[in-house]
């Protein structure tokens, strides 16, 4: 199979969906050519599709999302780009009170086929306002779908599915993945992946590592290390959609391994990992030896200094350590 970068895979998804469906429109800050987006994901779109369907916007996050909501409920299928996940707060009303609720409040009269693409995350000394992982904010809001792919094939197939979805999607692209290369099916295959479905990225019988987005690669590395150093076979579940999340795949894996670590780059306190851990406890109460651990960032803003950022944000070593803790607590290590 051919190998392309994550950013290229996402760009292909946008091109293919805009060619397929004339209702798809794209707007956001700096997205038009020659800039083609701050991270070049939208490069070439405005040249091919023109200024009516692909629009640069002023710095107006609330109106970018608000206009996307208005367009979505009147027949268009907008893909709005918010340059950094950290900027979503500026558009919060339109995301939380409008996009997420209009279908519900209308009694099901209308759907809101809207994608909000944004990127960000730690690892580049971007400091406290450009490096957050904020999926937990949105996982708390019924009506939203939060998609966080970990590799180019999923990125492309899930973005295509998001654009075709009749429900609002927040599509988080971890910045550290843009230059990651991976196998991606040819465009003719029109490959889609279902929103709301996790993927077992690596099979194992001893412990389940549940993760998503940029942390998936670290979990896979941690699994290799556990295998090599401890002979532990870790199963890695890439959640891919953080809300609504795929309980059945997680529970099935846990039922097999009876040990779990949930790992994310977002702050641990109040993170999505807490929800997953609590749910697994509730569902698996009748099992005797339930061991669950969580990995997440320290309860701190993301520091600027690279050595401080590394001290706050978790990595592969934290997952390995958490896995060993869980297994030793369960007396299996």
């Amino acid at each position: 199979m051919r190998q392309i970068l994550m950013r290229e895979a996402l760009r292909e998804a946008l091109f293919e969906e805009m060619r397929r469906d004339p209702r798809v429109v794209v707007f956001g800050e700096d997205i038009a050519d020659p800039m083609g987006g701050s991270y070049k994901v939208t490069l070439g779109l405005s040249t091919e599709f023109g200024a009516v369907r692909v629009r640069n916007t002023p710095i107006s996050e609330a109106a970018i999302v608000g206009a996307a909501v208005g367009a979505a409920i009147t027949g268009a299928r907008p893909v709005a780009e918010i340059m950094y996940m950290d900027f979503l707060g500026i558009a919060m009303d339109q995301i939380v009170n409008q996009a997420a609720k209009i279908r519900f409040m209308s009694g099901g009269q209308v759907s809101v086929p809207l994608v909000i693409r944004c990127q960000g995350g730690p690892g580049r000394a971007s400091a406290a306002q450009h490096a957050q992982m904020l999926e937990a904010w949105f996982a708390h809001v019924p009506g939203l779908q939060i998609v966080m792919p970990s590799n180019p094939a999923d990125g492309k197939a899930l973005l295509k599915a998001a654009i075709r979805s009749d429900n609002p999607v927040i599509f988080f692209e971890y910045n550290g993945l843009y230059n990651v290369r991976g196998d991606v099916p040819e465009p003719e295959e029109d490959a889609l992946e279902p929103i709301g479905k996790a993927k077992v990225a690596r099979e194992g019988k001893d412990i389940t590592l549940v993760t998503w987005s940029g942390m998936t690669r670290m979990a896979l590395q941690a699994a290799e290390q556990l295998q090599a150093e401890d002979g532990v076979q870790a199963e890695v579940v890439d959640l891919r959609t953080v809300s609504p999340w795929d309980k059945s795949t997680v529970l099935a894996s846990f039922a097999k391994t009876r040990a779990m670590v949930v790992a994310h780059q977002a702050v641990r306190q109040g993170g999505v990992g807490a929800e997953i851990a609590a749910t697994v406890y509730e569902e698996m109460l009748d099992l005797v030896d339930v061991e669950i651990g969580r990995v997440g960032a320290k309860f701190s803003p993301t520091p600027f200094a690279p050595e401080l950022e590394s001290a706050v944000v978790p990595g592969t070593a934290d997952i390995v350590r958490a896995a060993r803790d869980v297994l030793s607590r369960g007396g299996r290590f």
Binding site: V69, G70, A71, I73
Partner: peptide, 28 residues
């Protein structure tokens, strides 16, 4: 929606960009 009434709104000001977005649909 069949009457073009895309909503009363409980958030003051929120309907303004939503109407703008409807304008995008018409233009597209």
């Amino acid at each position: 929606f069949s009457l073009g009434i895309v909503g009363a709104n409980g958030i003051v000001g929120a309907g303004v960009p939503i109407a703008t977005g409807a304008g995008i649909s018409f233009q597209v």
